[in-house]
Amino acid sequence: MHDFELVKPASVAEAVAALAAEGAQALSGGQTLLPSMKQRLAAPDRLVSLLDIPEMRGVCHGDRGLAVGGATPHAVVAREAAARYPALAALAGQIGDPAVRSRGTIGGSLANNDPAACYPAAALASGATIVTDRREIAADDYFQGLFTTALDEGEIITTVHFPIPERACYMKFEQPASRFALVGVFVAKYADGVRVAVTGAGEDGVFRWTDAEDALTADFRPEALQGLVVDADGLIGDLHGTPAYRANLIAVLTKRAVAAA
């Protein structure tokens, strides 16, 4: 790891100012960034930690559903979202291990947009709104490809609003080594329709399985998915699973998520 400066702002405004410097990088738990730095794959001059900003931490309930502060660790979401949005809490409780869940944050995960991360599936399936220091972004507009999002340089996720579904479930099939999602499917049923988001499988990151959404909006039962197949084209193939295998998992996990929702 190369030397760097660590800045710990106490407000969003201070954080934005600190990030304006050349070579500055936001640190929101660091569960991806710090290993990259240890391997010398990343060498920011300045890390701006977002964890000491009170307005960015915690889970609360309001008109727009569940509001989760961008710097809220997974373990806190797992605990505090359990009553209002159990599927989201369950997802947070399955990320990594206890150490990762204590440090990693929802904002860090969404800003990084790892194609195998869990939170993007929840945000996209819930039709969440990503609130930043300067604007609001709908989840449908936010995810733009592998490790790519609508965020501008230096833009900070302050809050994520999750509309609360009638029923929902996240099914994750773990990659055996990393225990990231080999495939993860989040199914959320709202009054105006069902949304199905898939992580771990798409070459461009998280995506919605619209055929399944249509079928489930019409009939929210596993049987409604009968005969629906996912095109393996555009799915990830690697050591741990072929595109065809991932396509199968999407169908299987969606069915199981509906059954369990």
Binding site: P176, A177, S178, F180, L239, H240
Partner: peptide
């Protein structure tokens, strides 16, 4: 039997060079 396996690609690059890909 179920988890571990060192894998090289055809260029001799180790694809399982960390616990992210080598399943203990």
């Amino acid at each position: 039997a179920l988890l571990e396996g060192v894998v090289y690609n055809e260029d001799g690059q180790l694809l399982t060079g960390s616990y992210m890909d080598y399943a203990m």
